[in-house]
C-alpha cells in the first residue's frame, strides 16, 4: 500500500498480491495511512483509492490468515482477536468515511467482502465495466464485518441489501450502477483515469461547502457499526464458521466463494 499527494489529490494505491486481501499487515498499513490522513487532508480536497493489481480492487478479509490464526488459539482468544481486528479496521474505515475530503473508490475486477466495504466507505464509486461486487460472508456462517451492512443500508434500498447479503451473489458494474451503488461505469482500465478527472473537477469547488454537504448527506451509522461487530463476534463462535473457513481454505473450486 502506498500513497501520494499531487495537486490536492491523495491517491492510495493497493498492491498486495494476490488481490489485496486484508490481514494484519494490510490493517497496519491502513492504520498508518489513517494516521497520516489528517495531515494530508490539510493540503488536499480529494482522495482516490485504487488497486494496481490486475486481479481486482480487493478480495476482502484474508480468510486464510483468519483460519490459520484461529486454529492456533483457544476459541475464546480467537474471538477476542477477531473483535480487536474488527474494532481496529472500523476505526480506520470510519476515519476515511468522515474525512474532510471527497473520496472516490476507483474499482475494477474483484471487489468482494472487505474490499466492497472499503469501496462503500468512499463518497463515490467509479467502476471499470469488469468490476464485480459481492458479499459472500454467509457462506462462512458470518455477516460482513467491516461495516458493510450499515453502509449498504445507508446507500441503497433494503431490498437490494437483502439480495446482496442473503443470496451472496455477485453483481457486475452495470447492475451495481442500476441499483445506485456505482456513480459511473467506464471501459476496462479507465476507472483510475476517470477518478482523477473527477477529482480535478472537485478541486474547483469551495472546500468548506463540499465538507458541509458531505457531512449533511452522509451520516456515519456508528451505532449500527458497533452492533455489526457484536453480531459478527457472536456468529464467529459457531462451529459452522470454522467448517466454512476450512472448506474455503482447502477449496480448489473455481467458485470458492460459493457454499
Amino acid at each position: 500500500m502506498s500513497w501520494v499527494l499531487n495537486d490536492g489529490v491523495i491517491e492510495l494505491a493497493l498492491h498486495r498480491s494476490p488481490c489485496n486481501e486484508i490481514g494484519l499487515l494490510a490493517l497496519e498499513e491502513l492504520e498508518r495511512f489513517s494516521g497520516a490522513l489528517d495531515a494530508l487532508a490539510r493540503d488536499a480536497h480529494a482522495l482516490i483509492v485504487h488497486s494496481t493489481l490486475r486481479s481486482g480492487f480487493c478480495a476482502g478479509a484474508d480468510l486464510r490468515e483468519l483460519y490459520f490464526r484461529s486454529q492456533e488459539m483457544e476459541k475464546a482468544r480467537a474471538v477476542e482477536g477477531v473483535r480487536d481486528f474488527l474494532e481496529r479496521i472500523h476505526r480506520v474505515l470510519n476515519n476515511i468515511d468522515a474525512a474532510p475530503l471527497t473520496t472516490i473508490a476507483a474499482v475494477h475486477g474483484v471487489t468482494f467482502g472487505g474490499g466492497f466495504e472499503l469501496a462503500l466507505v468512499c463518497d463515490l464509486i467509479i467502476a471499470d465495466k469488469m468490476a464485480r461486487f459481492c458479499f459472500p460472508e454467509l457462506r462462512l456462517g458470518l455477516i460482513p464485518g467491516f461495516g458493510g451492512i450499515p453502509r449498504l443500508k445507508r446507500d441503497l434500498g433494503n431490498g437490494v441489501v437483502r439480495d446482496l447479503v442473503l443470496t451472496g451473489r455477485s453483481l457486475n458494474a452495470t447492475k451495481a450502477q442500476a441499483v445506485g451503488l456505482v456513480s459511473q461505469v467506464v471501459g476496462e482500465g479507465e476507472a483510475l483515469r476517470l477518478a482523477q478527472a473527477t477529482a480535478a473537477q472537485l478541486g474547483k469547488f469551495d472546500r468548506r461547502a463540499a465538507i458541509a454537504a458531505k457531512k449533511f448527506i452522509k451520516p456515519i451509522p456508528y451505532h449500527e457499526l458497533t452492533q455489526e461487530i457484536d453480531l459478527f463476534c457472536q456468529l464467529f463462535t459457531e462451529p459452522s464458521v470454522e467448517k466454512g473457513l476450512r472448506k474455503f481454505v482447502e477449496s480448489t473450486d473455481a467458485q470458492p466463494y460459493l457454499p
Binding site: 488481490c19 486481479s55 475486477g109 474483484v110 469488469m130 464485480r132 473455481a254 470458492p256
Partner: peptide, 9 residues
C-alpha cells in the same frame, strides 16, 4: 477462480 469471474462478467 479469478478468471472464471472474469468470464462470467
Amino acid at each position: 477462480s479469478l478468471q472464471a469471474l472474469d468470464l462470467l462478467t
